[in-house]
């Protein structure tokens, strides 16, 4: 039984085209010309309770627009969304009680207030029962180690601390689904890890549904079993991470340590991506050349001490998709 249903969702923005110059400014007042931008085109998907879905795509692909429609901030141009049988923008009040939202770029908390006071205000805004509030607060303080800064004003927090506080704030009212827009942006490795662990924990133990947009492929690798990929407003892929990798993860890497300094170590069909002393890294595609063939051609010409074949990681796969526009070709 699907919890979130999105059906043929479209969002078209009217963008005013400004005329330049002083005369233009006055003419702009009188009449404006518009051009249409299709931010989201005909997207459909369903998400079950308790899923953890990664929503990927390059900048301006339509990720944020989709999230804004799912959270009820924007109204679609056409198509339908229901979240547990509620239409987000029509029953905003009921909908927002059931969701939590974190914007990585911007806090939802009160800038000049200590974290704990922000939580307190949220308790009243969402009418969270006192005992439930205390229980949740205790849990998040433990998991996210909020104690060290709970009396600090939000403006004085580090980015990592702020994100932890925002995450806790988004979960205080026991939402059924949480939207995270770039939750690890700008964080260091340790902070990222802490946040990922937390998300996983809440997802698995409390059964909360998560939808997260991200640029960070580490997030995807660590968290998401299911991935949706969007570009130019179109949903290009929706399935398990593994499938994405199998289908598109074609480029592998071969790292070779040569026994001697060779002038020209190039091999047709493989691309040299790094050269350091006697160590050279090649990138080659599954379709064009097998690993054994490449190793064979190298061994014929040069003396090799050591070599490693690296399977494509998610990052490479996705970069490959973006660069080659693989998916959009398929759909067009």
């Amino acid at each position: 039984m699907s919890f979130i249903k999105v059906d043929q969702l479209c969002k078209t923005f009217k963008v005013a085209t400004h005329k330049r110059g002083f005369v233009g400014a006055i003419r702009n007042l009188a009449s404006r010309q518009h051009s249409l931008v299709k931010a989201v085109q005909d997207i459909s998907f369903q998400i079950k309770r308790g899923e953890l879905v990664g929503y990927l795509g390059p900048n301006g692909a339509g990720k944020s627009t989709t999230i804004k429609m799912l959270t009820g901030i924007l109204v679609p141009s056409s198509g339908q969304i229901t979240v547990g049988n509620i239409i987000p923008w029509e029953q905003r009040n009921q909908h927002t009680r059931r969701i939590g939202v974190v914007f990585g770029q911007r806090t939802n908390l009160w800038w000049d207030l200590p974290v704990i006071e922000s939580f307190d205000l949220l308790k009243y805004i969402y009418n969270v029962p006192e005992d439930r509030f205390k229980q949740n607060l205790k849990k998040f303080e433990d998991l996210l180690e909020l104690g060290e800064f709970s009396n600090t004003p939000v403006r004085s927090l580090s980015l990592g601390q702020r994100m932890r506080a925002d995450l806790a704030a988004a979960l205080l009212h026991d939402p059924e689904v949480v939207f995270l827009d770039e939750p690890t942006i700008g964080l260091d490795v340790v902070a990222k890890d802490r946040i990922r662990t937390f998300i996983k924990e809440i997802n698995q133990n409390a059964g909360v549904t998560f939808i997260l947009t991200t640029h960070d492929l580490g997030d995807v690798q660590k968290l998401c079993r299911r991935v949706m990929m969007i570009d130019h407003g179109k949903l290009l892929f929706d399935g398990p991470l593994q499938e994405l990798q199998d289908r598109f993860g074609q480029e592998r890497e071969l790292e070779v340590d040569f026994a001697d300094d060779y002038e020209d170590v190039s091999i047709p069909g493989a691309k040299i991506i790094q050269q350091q002393g006697r160590q050279t890294t090649y990138r080659f595609s599954r379709e064009q050349m097998s690993a054994s063939k490449l190793i064979q051609s190298l061994a014929e010409k040069f003396q090799i001490i050591d070599l490693t074949v690296r399977e494509p990681d998610v990052e490479n796969t996705i970069r490959h998709i973006y660069e080659k526009k693989l998916l959009s070709h398929q759909n067009d």
């Binding site: 009820g72 009040n93 927002t96 009680r97 939802n108």
Partner: peptide, 13 residues
């Protein structure tokens, strides 16, 4: 301009 109005629209008030 700063997008803070979005933070308002996600609250049940």
């Amino acid at each position: 301009r700063l997008g803070k109005f979005d933070s308002i629209l996600i609250r049940p008030r």
